[in-house]
């Protein structure tokens, strides 16, 4: 008799736990407002990343097409993956002195791990992390970018 009661109670208890589980899923079934998923490409306009989001390395230019990069190469040294290459050139300043300036700041997004070490190490704050996160391209070569815009110059008040 005892075994029979135990047998029936195991069945009932088992059914009870099942009903409890169903209560949780049922709770959410009837509350479609709690849905947390987003429809990504549709909500592109409203989608805003956090201000520290590390999407890619960019070099901000002001309205006169001036940047802050002196071409010192510290970011290149700090990069663990070799995704930054600095090509410098010598120009002559109006005073007649020879000066080393940046020719091309080459950035391989395909090799970048977005570790933030270059941005942290940059003494002049010339490069920052961008917010863009949609990096898919058709061709791998498009991932290699030149960060300084053509014809851009060093800002006046940046110390070397």
């Amino acid at each position: 008799m005892k075994a029979l009661i135990q047998y029936i109670s195991t069945i009932l208890q088992g059914l009870l736990t099942l009903v409890k589980g169903m209560a949780v899923t049922g709770h959410y079934f009837f509350r479609p407002k709690l849905i947390t998923t987003q429809q990504y490409p549709e909500n592109r306009q409203t989608l805003k990343m956090f201000d520290r989001f590390r999407g890619e390395v960019i070099m901000p230019h002001d309205e006169n097409n001036h940047h802050k990069c002196t071409g010192c190469g510290i970011c290149e040294m700090n990069c663990p993956n070799g995704s930054i290459e600095i090509i410098t050139k010598m120009i002559e300043t109006p005073e007649g002195k020879k000066k080393k300036v940046i020719d091309k700041h080459i950035y391989h997004l395909g090799m970048c791990t977005l570790c933030n070490l270059c941005v942290k190490a940059c003494p002049t704050g010339a490069i920052v992390m961008g917010q863009k996160f949609e990096h898919a391209v058709w061709d791998r070569t498009q991932l290699t970018k030149v960060l300084n815009q053509p014809g851009s110059e060093l800002m006046k008040d940046v110390k070397e």
Binding site: T25, Y28, F29, P32, L34, I35, T36, T37, Q39
Partner: peptide
């Protein structure tokens, strides 16, 4: 759709 609602998703849209 039903499984999406159980799982707090939208399902096919």
């Amino acid at each position: 759709k039903v499984c999406a609602l159980f799982q707090q998703r939208l399902g096919p849209m």
